[in-house]
């Protein structure tokens, strides 16, 4: 999975300015930046939701998990129906079993399939959204701020899930977040975006431990810390 010179423009505004980035198979690449840095526009370009110029190669099946678990599931569809949406290629009779398997992958009980999203907590909804995306057997999963609408007490379990999916399924993930601590915990490499450009990219330990760019340093210094 490789982007080369990807540019996204909205009218005269350039949201993403010739960005090149590579997501290795089975790797989690973190994309950090502040609001307006272009990270969400890049995610949408990768997912085919906005027009872009440049090349994106190596990922034909991209799925995305959205920030707000309360908006990403149709309130009038049962969980099982939502998850089955990505299974249109399967024969109808095989779908319930596949839904059970997908829910199992995200550690949710099979009987959840007959419930409505309103009966689920935010963390559970986000797992359902991940299960739905996995149903399309993506070769790249784009996770756009998937824990920022969740409470801290459930955030951990979703982050653990992302890491275990990478380990068990060999899934490639583009993990977008404004929270450096979360990105540091989840990702193998980190790309820092600022005003539409990637200003620094490298292995997580290096970027966090020995930041090369001034902007990365500013970001790191601003992370709130609990005195331990």
């Amino acid at each position: 999975m490789k982007f080369t010179d990807v540019t996204v423009r909205f009218g005269s505004f350039t949201a993403v300015d010739s960005v090149s980035l590579e997501v290795p198979r089975g790797g989690i690449v973190g994309l950090v930046g502040e609001s307006g840095s272009g990270k969400s526009s890049l995610a949408k370009a990768v997912s085919g939701l906005v027009r872009y110029s440049g090349q994106i190669t190596g990922a034909s099946r991209v799925q995305m998990v959205f920030q707000d678990p309360y908006a990403s599931l149709d309130p009038r569809m049962k969980v099982g129906e939502s998850v089955a949406e990505g299974l249109l290629e399967l024969p109808r009779a095989a779908r319930p079993d596949e839904v059970t398997r997908l829910l199992g992958l995200v550690s949710l009980p099979a009987d959840l399939a007959s419930r409505y999203p309103r009966e689920l907590s935010g963390g559970m909804r986000q797992r359902v959204a991940i299960a739905r995306a996995l149903g399309a057997r993506p070769d790249l999963l784009v996770a756009d701020e998937i824990t920022s609408a969740l409470d801290v007490s459930v955030q951990g379990s979703v982050l653990n899930l992302i890491r275990s999916l990478r380990d068990t399924l060999g899934l490639s993930i583009l993990f977008i977040s404004h929270n450096l601590a979360v990105v540091r915990y989840v990702c193998d490499t980190v790309a820092v975006m600022h005003r539409g450009r990637i200003v620094e990219h490298g292995p997580t330990e290096d970027v966090v431990g020995r930041p090369a760019h001034d902007y990365t340093r500013t970001l790191l210094e601003a992370v709130p810390r609990l005195q331990r």
């Binding site: 799925q63 939502s82 399309a136």
Partner: peptide, 11 residues
């Protein structure tokens, strides 16, 4: 978002 998700799933 759920319509975007459905579009990405090829519905």
């Amino acid at each position: 978002d759920y319509v975007l998700a459905a579009r990405m799933l090829g519905v």
